[in-house]
Structures are given as C-alpha cells and as structure tokens.
Simulated assay, not measured.
Amino acid sequence: MSLFFGPAVNGIGVIAAGILGSTAKKLIPERMGETLLKVMGLATIYIGFSGALKGEHIMITLASLALGTVIGEFLDLEKRINQLGDWLQRRFQPKDSNVSIAEGFVNCSLLICVGAMAIVGAMESGLTGTHSTLLAKSFIDTVAAFIMASTMGIGVALSGVLVMLYEGLMALMAQFIAPLLTEIVINEITCAGSIIIVGVGLNLLKVTNIRIMNTVPGIFLPILFCMFL
C-alpha cells in the first residue's frame, strides 16, 4: 500500500546504513570511534535545542513531559525496550563480539522515532499518500544511523525494523489523529520531542543516565492538553 512507502524507505535506509556502518566499524580505530560518538551526542543536543525553540506554551510542554514521564514510569517502558534490546543481543550478537547490540538498538530507535517529523511525516503518508517529509527525514536518519553504527555496531540496523513499525502505525492512525494536529499542537509536540532528544544526546555523552523511553508518552500529550486550552 502506498501509505507505507515513506515508513518503508525510512526503515530500510536505517537498516542499510546500520549494516554499512557496522562493517566500517572494523576499519575505525577505537579512539576515533569514541570521538565520533561524542560528536554524534553533541549534534543530537543541537538538533534537540533547535526544535525546542518552536514551543510557545511552556506550561503545556512541562505538563506533557511531567505526566508523560509518570505514565512511562508506571508502564516501565524503558525496561520493556531494554528487554527487547537484550533479546536481540542474545539472538544476533556473535560470541566473540563485545559490542552491545542492545545499546545501539535502543539509542538509535529513540533518536529516530522521537520527534515531530516521525509523527507528522507518517500522518502525511497516511492521509495524502505523499512522502516528502519522511523522505527528507530518511536522508537525515541514514546519515545518523551510519555514524552511530560505526561506533555502536549492528544494533543500529535492527532499529530500522522498529522505525517501520512505528511510522507505519502512525500512518494507519492518521485518519483519527490528523484533525487534532493544529499548528499549535505540532509546535508543542516538536518542543516536547526535542527536549527528549536533548536527553538522548546527554546520555550518548555519558553526562546523564536518564530513562528516556519513560518520557516518550509526553510527546503525544500536547494533543490532549491543547484540546482544552
């Protein structure tokens, strides 16, 4: 179906870049890999701050992130995605490898799935059958996945499957959610998602150890809050 074209391109791009990047990892000295990962963390923080400035209603952002974190902690989403990552590690990691598949899978999944472009782009695919937003996002994600895979290994490639499922689900839900996505709502989703992306960057730099996945429900709560404001 045409509505899945954008999610498929995005996911396949991440898988391909992850495979190529993990192959290139063997050619990259450990010292250079560590520096590349830190640069990726800095770039992620910059992307997060850039998007966070689009928010106009700080109380909606704070309320969304606070309530979203309560929901995420209650459901313990971080534990669940780490369990999935651990299963992938047991299933796919070679015995002679010390690279954490789970770490690459979780970090890349969060970086690519968290953010307004994933939601709005998937909505565009589901409603109009056009995929310009997701195709543009695919280019960005492919570059990011290659860099991450060159330092974090094949787990990054596996996150491409989650990207396809997540964006495909958003495309299917488009008919129900799209009428609620006003300009204000999109700006607040962008702001909340971008703040979470800053957290991803800080975790990549090992500055913090935030349970990022437990904050992700906060991305969707501006839809609810803006309905009553």
Rank of each mutant, 00 (worst) to 15 (best):
G168I: 12
A145N: 06
A116K: 02
C113V: 11
S138W: 07
S100K: 00
M170L: 15
H131L: 11
I119N: 03
G115Y: 02
G155F: 02
L169A: 15
F146E: 04
T128M: 10
M148S: 10
M152R: 12
T151D: 02
M148C: 10
L169F: 15
S159L: 08
D141N: 10
G160E: 08
S109E: 05
G121R: 12
S97P: 00
D141W: 07
K137N: 07
G155N: 02
Y166S: 01
I112F: 15
K95W: 05
V99K: 03
G104F: 03
I112R: 01
E103D: 13
D141R: 06
T128V: 05
A149Q: 08
A122L: 07
G121L: 10
S138H: 07
T151W: 02
S138P: 13
E103T: 13
G126F: 12
A144W: 07
F146V: 12
L110K: 06
A144Q: 09
D96G: 00
S125Q: 10
S100W: 00
D96P: 01
S125D: 11
M152Q: 14
L134K: 13
A116M: 09
E103L: 12
L169D: 06
S97C: 01
L110P: 09
L127C: 10
S125N: 10
S150I: 05
L111M: 14
E103W: 03
C108D: 01
V120C: 06
A116P: 02
N107L: 14
